[in-house]
């Protein structure tokens, strides 16, 4: 686009003073944060603090009332936004996996590249096979979502999102609905991505994981970012009483 002079040294995702209300309930009260290319950030905080709403605004699943969200310099909060263009850049994985139940694992991964990007079948299929192996599901290509465990479904969902070759991935409490024993396999898949240099924004309750993979941690409460910092200092040197209280409950 002509007015876009974004360069990779600028934030890949830039959120500026975002406000968002549902009816009378203001869930985001001026949130500002930047995510650089290759950075992994974790957003933590109590339920109802607006974490999920915030990342849903990044790929325009939710609209915002004021402020600005830019992805690679493209304003998301623009009525003339080319949504397809945005969603090619931003992948998203949901808490409830949301796979297409009538499609096999492989077909789930292939659907968007085939139908949306109209890429050639052979190329898409080859990539889908690679992706399914990447999330450690070799052999499950022809299984339907209903035949897979939660953790397996979530890994298919990650592969499905990666098939669009996004520049940034959003993870919305992706382990919250999983059985404890399958949480790890999903976290491993995300960690693998992060180590590969994928830019990731995670909303999570997995503090150990956040500490391990995040470059930066944001703590939100009641629609604002209360405190943020690199994990090395965030968990040990939290200053705000709300952060301290939250961490004491969860760690």
């Amino acid at each position: 686009m002509s007015d876009n002079d974004w360069t990779p040294d600028q934030p890949l995702v830039s959120i500026r003073d975002v406000h968002k209300s549902f009816g009378n309930l203001e869930v985001l009260k001026g949130v500002t944060l930047d995510v650089m290319k290759g950075e992994v950030i974790c957003i933590i905080g109590p339920s109802g603090s607006g974490k999920s709403t915030l990342i849903r605004c990044v790929n325009a699943l939710n609209t915002i009332d004021s402020g600005s969200i830019k992805v690679e310099g493209q304003e998301v909060h623009d009525p003339n936004l080319d949504k397809l263009d945005l969603r090619k850049k931003v992948g998203m994985v949901f808490q409830q996996y949301n796979l297409f139940p009538h499609k096999t694992a492989l077909e789930n991964i292939m659907m968007a590249p085939l139908k949306v990007l109209k890429q050639p079948q052979a190329e898409v299929e080859e990539r889908a096979h690679k992706l399914i192996k990447r999330v450690n599901l070799g052999g499950k290509e022809n299984a339907y979502p209903g035949e897979l465990s939660g953790g397996q479904q979530q890994r298919v969902a990650i592969a499905r999102s990666l098939a669009m070759n996004p520049d940034v991935m959003l993870f919305d409490e992706v382990t919250a609905a999983l059985d404890p024993e399958t949480v790890n396999e999903v976290l491993l898949a995300i960690k693998d991505l992060a180590q590969d240099g994928m830019t990731c924004i995670l909303v999570t309750h997995e503090m150990g994981f956040a500490r391990e993979v995040a470059d930066h941690i944001y703590f939100t409460d009641r629609g604002v970012i209360v405190e943020h910092g690199p994990p090395a200092t965030f968990f040990t040197e939290a200053k705000d009483p709300r952060t301290k209280e939250f961490l004491s409950q969860i760690l």
């Binding site: 790929n59 699943l61 949504k83 397809l84 969603r87 090619k88 931003v90 992948g91 998203m92 949901f94 409830q96 949301n98 796979l99 297409f100 139940p101 659907m111 968007a112 139908k115 949306v116 990007l117 969902a157 499905r160 999102s161 669009m164």
Partner: peptide
């Protein structure tokens, strides 16, 4: 489910594609 359609939307599908394929 709305959430299944939302996942399709997040993958860049438009309303017609979501209707036909999902």
């Amino acid at each position: 489910p709305e959430s299944t359609q939302e996942a399709a939307e997040a993958l860049g599908m438009n309303r017609l594609q979501i209707y036909i394929y999902v």
